[in-house]
């Protein structure tokens, strides 16, 4: 399958064209956040405080990279399990987040929120952190530095490989894939 080149932040037209199961190569700006950063972002939204970056239209990558060696941009930086962010993701989508990158399936609440807010979910290859780091050209901590690997980073990526797992039409890659290759119980 030929990969589709897309640029972050995503525009509305591209979001509509992306369908579950399509491999993509992502370029542009994305932001990292994991459990602890999500908790702080959601609490800040609750208190109506200013956020460290504008969420509207942006992409969140669930990763906590390993430390960069001197002279390097970043360490290993593959996706972490998205399910742990499910309790926070709908709130961030209602605040404007349009895309998420992680690994593993999402809850029904998150999938409903994706359809409602016209947001997409991509998966990158879990455990391929060394390879994925090669597509990350710039990395800068922009918030919550005290969280170490869990700090929020702004990344500039170039041809970062991922797959559309959930599109805005309610399709789910994990359900589709499993149904296709599952053998009846003998």
């Amino acid at each position: 399958m030929e990969a589709v080149h897309i640029t972050m932040p995503l525009d509305r037209k591209t979001i509509k064209e992306l369908t579950t199961g399509t491999p993509v190569l992502i370029s542009g700006i994305i932001y990292t956040a994991r459990d602890a950063a999500h908790k702080r972002l959601v609490e800040a939204l609750k208190r109506k405080e200013e956020l460290p970056f504008v969420l509207k239209g942006q992409t969140i990558y669930y990763t906590g990279p390993s430390p960069a060696r001197p002279g390097r941009t970043i360490g290993s930086a593959g996706p972490t399990t998205s399910g742990r962010m499910d309790i926070y993701a709908p709130r961030l989508m209602s605040a404007g987040v349009k895309a998420m990158i992680g690994k593993g399936n999402r809850s029904s609440e998150v999938r409903e929120a994706m359809q409602k807010h016209k947001a997409v979910y991509f998966i990158a290859t879990g455990g391929a952190g060394a390879l994925l780091a090669q597509s990350i050209k710039k990395a800068a901590v922009i918030a919550y530095e005290d969280l170490g690997p869990e700090a929020v980073r702004m990344l500039t990526v170039d041809n970062f490989p991922a797959i559309v797992a959930n599109d805005i039409y309610g399709n789910d890659l994990f359900e589709q894939g499993k149904a296709k290759y599952r053998k009846e119980k003998s």
Partner: peptide, 27 residues
């Protein structure tokens, strides 16, 4: 898609060893 992912994992091992980068960021 599964084949492509497995290809990435084999490639990941090559990059990790060549660059002394952790195979996975979760060490």
């Amino acid at each position: 898609l599964g084949k492509e992912i497995l290809h990435q994992l084999v490639e990941n091992a090559r990059v990790a060893e060549a660059k002394n980068l952790p195979l996975c960021q979760d060490c």
